[in-house]
Design a protein around this nucleic acid. Structure first.
Length: 425
RNA sequence: GGAGAGAUGGCAGAGUGGUCUAUUGCGGCGGUCUUGAAAACCGCUGAACCGCAAGGUUCCGGGGGUUCGAAUCCCUCUCUCUCCGCCA
C-alpha cells in the first residue's frame, strides 16, 4: 500500500511514477473519494465529539441529582444524524481502502523502464553455459532413470504434479538441507518452521489479496474460515512481523524457511506443460529480511548474492537481471531475477526472484520498529528465493547429465547424498 | 469432540453502565543527589487515523447489538488455559 499522505500531497507525481510500470492511476476517482472522505470524516468526528461531551454532561447532572432531560432531548437530534454519518463513513473508508490496496508499488528511479520481460536488463553472468549437442531435458532424463514419474502423479492428483523416487527424491531432499544450512551457517539467517496454510489477513499483508487471489488454492472451510495454501514462504515469514513493533536493535531480521508452495497457475495454461518447471506444488527455500528504511537498498544487494552463492556452490551457470518496470510484481519497488542455464532449452530460466518491497507490505500489515529516538516507523521488507528447489533439481539434471544417462552429483551435495558420486538407474 | 475458566497498554494486574478517552505495580526514559554507580526521591512513558497547527476521533481479542453514554450488559466468532476423550 502506498502512503496515503504521499498520494494526497502529490497525486499527479505518483500517477507518473505508476505509469512507468503500465498502471494507470485513476486520479479522478481518487480525488472524488478523498474529498468525500475528508468532508464526511470531519463532520462525523465533530458529531462524535458533541455526543461525547453531551453524555458526559448527562452523567455529571445525574451525579448531582439534577434533571438531565433537556440535555437528553439535544442528544436525540445528534443520534440519528451521527448514526447515518458513521455508516456512510465506514462504507466510504472501505471503498477507499480497497482502492488503495489495489495500487501497486512505485518503482525505484533506478529500475529500467520497459513493458515486459524483453526489456529486463542483464547485470552479470557467472559460469560457462554447456551447449551440449543432443542434451536431454530433465523430464526425459528423470523418466529414463525411473525416478521421475508424471504419469502416476497425474493419477494421484492431476496435471502439474510430480512423483520422485530413489536417488532423485534424495537429491531433492538434499538440496533443501544444503540450501538452509548454507544460509544459516554462512549468511546469518534464522531458520524457521511455519504454517503452510494462512488466513486472509496474512495474504492481504504481503499483497496476494485482494487482487491476486486467483492463483491461490483455497481450503473449503465448512465453518466459515477463509484459509489458503501458501504460494510462497514469503507470506508466513513476512507476516511474522504483522501488527508488531520490534526493537530497533534487533534489526536487520533475516529469516529463512523451507516450505512447499502451492500455485493454481491460473493463466499459465499451455505454458511449460512438460516436466517439473511449472508445478502446482513445489519446494522453495525462502529468504526474508526486515530492515530500517535506509538499509533496504544494500540489503537487496546482499540478498541476491546469497541466492547466487547457492548456484555457485552447485556450479550451475546463471545470469542476474534487473527487472524492468513492466515485469515487476505489484509489491516490488525493485527486483532482481536470477536465471539458471538449461541446456535442453538453450536458454536461461528463472530460479530466483529477489525484491525490495520497501514499506509497501509493512504499511499493509503495520510491521514497525522503534527508532533509537523512540519513534515508531514502518520497516522495509525484502524477500527472495534461495532457491526454488524443484527448478534447481531440474538444472542439476540437465547440466550434470552424462552420456550414459546418469547424473553427476555436485561436489557440494555429496555429503548430503551419503557420498554418492552419481545418480544411476 | 465434551465440561469449565479466561482474553485489558512492553509485562503483571485493577476496573462489572457515567466525574474512566482505563487505578496501580514492574520495566523503560529523563532529572535531583553522587567522584562514578547503586539506592532513594521527582517527572515522563500505548498506536491508528484526521488536522498547517491548536486540537479531534477511534481502539480494553474480532464482529454485531442495547443505550444519550459500554472495558463493563446481550448475541456471535476466534484464540488461550484446566480437566476428560481421541490421536501423528
Amino acid at each position: 500500500m502506498l502512503d496515503p499522505k504521499r498520494l494526497r500531497a502529490n497525486p499527479e507525481a505518483v500517477a507518473v511514477q505508476l505509469a512507468r510500470r503500465g498502471y494507470s492511476f485513476d486520479l479522478p476517482r481518487f480525488t472524488e473519494l478523498e474529498s468525500a472522505r475528508k468532508q464526511l470524516q470531519s463532520e462525523t468526528e465533530k458529531l462524535q465529539a458533541e455526543r461525547n461531551a453531551g453524555s458526559k454532561r448527562i452523567g455529571q447532572a445525574k451525579a448531582k441529582g439534577e434533571d438531565a432531560a433537556p440535555i437528553l432531548a439535544d442528544m436525540e437530534l445528534i443520534k440519528d444524524k451521527l448514526s447515518r454519518n458513521e455508516q456512510a463513513l465506514s462504507t466510504l473508508q472501505a471503498d477507499f481502502e480497497n482502492f488503495l490496496l489495489g495500487i501497486p508499488n512505485v518503482p525505484q528511479d533506478s529500475v529500467p523502464d520497459g513493458r515486459d520481460e524483453n526489456d529486463n536488463v542483464e547485470l552479470r553472468r557467472w559460469g560457462t553455459p554447456r551447449t551440449a549437442e543432443g542434451a536431454k531435458d530433465h523430464a526425459d532424463l528423470g523418466e529414463a532413470l525411473g525416478q521421475m514419474d508424471f504419469t502416476v502423479a497425474a493419477k494421484l492428483t492431476g496435471a502439474r504434479f510430480t512423483v520422485l523416487r530413489g536417488g532423485l527424491a534424495r537429491l531433492h531432499r538434499a538440496l533443501t538441507q544444503f540450501m538452509i544450512d548454507t544460509h544459516v551457517q554462512e549468511h546469518g539467517y534464522e531458520e524457521h518452521y511455519v504454517p503452510y496454510i494462512v488466513n486472509a489477513a496474512s495474504l492481504r499483508g504481503t499483497g496476494q489479496l485482494p487482487k491476486f487471489g486467483d492463483d491461490l488454492f483455497a481450503l473449503k472451510g465448512e465453518d466459515g474460515t477463509d484459509w489458503r495454501l501458501i504460494p510462497t514462504a514469503e507470506v508466513p515469514l513476512t507476516n511474522l512481523l504483522r501488527d508488531e513493533i520490534v526493537a530497533g536493535d534487533t534489526l536487520p531480521k533475516k529469516f529463512v524457511a523451507h516450505t512447499p508452495c502451492f500455485r493454481a497457475e491460473a493463466g499459465a495454461a499451455g505454458r511449460d506443460t512438460k516436466g517439473m518447471i511449472r508445478q502446482h506444488q513445489f519446494e522453495k527455500v525462502e529468504l526474508v529480511w526486515a530492515v530500517r528504511p535506509e538499509e533496504s537498498a544494500d540489503a537487496l544487494e546482499q540478498l541476491v548474492r546469497h541466492a547466487e552463492a547457492i548456484l555457485q556452490k552447485l556450479d550451475l551457470p546463471y545470469r542476474v537481471l534487473a527487472l524492468c518496470t513492466g515485469d515487476m510484481g505489484a509489491t516490488a519497488a525493485r527486483t532482481y531475477d536470477i536465471e539458471v542455464w538449461l541446456p535442453s532449452q538453450n536458454r536461461y530460466r528463472e530460479i530466483s526472484s529477489c525484491s525490495n518491497c520497501e514499506d509497501f507490505q509493512a504499511r499493509r500489515m503495520l510491521a514497525r520498529y522503534r527508532t533509537a529516538a523512540g519513534k515508531v516507523e514502518l520497516l522495509h521488507t525484502l524477500n527472495g528465493s534461495g532457491l526454488a528447489v524443484g527448478r534447481t533439481l531440474v538444472a542439476i539434471l540437465e547440466n550434470n547429465q552424462q552420456a550414459d544417462g546418469s547424473i553427476r552429483v555436485p561436489e557440494a551435495l555429496k555429503s548430503y547424498m551419503g557420498g554418492a558420486e552419481t545418480i544411476t538407474a
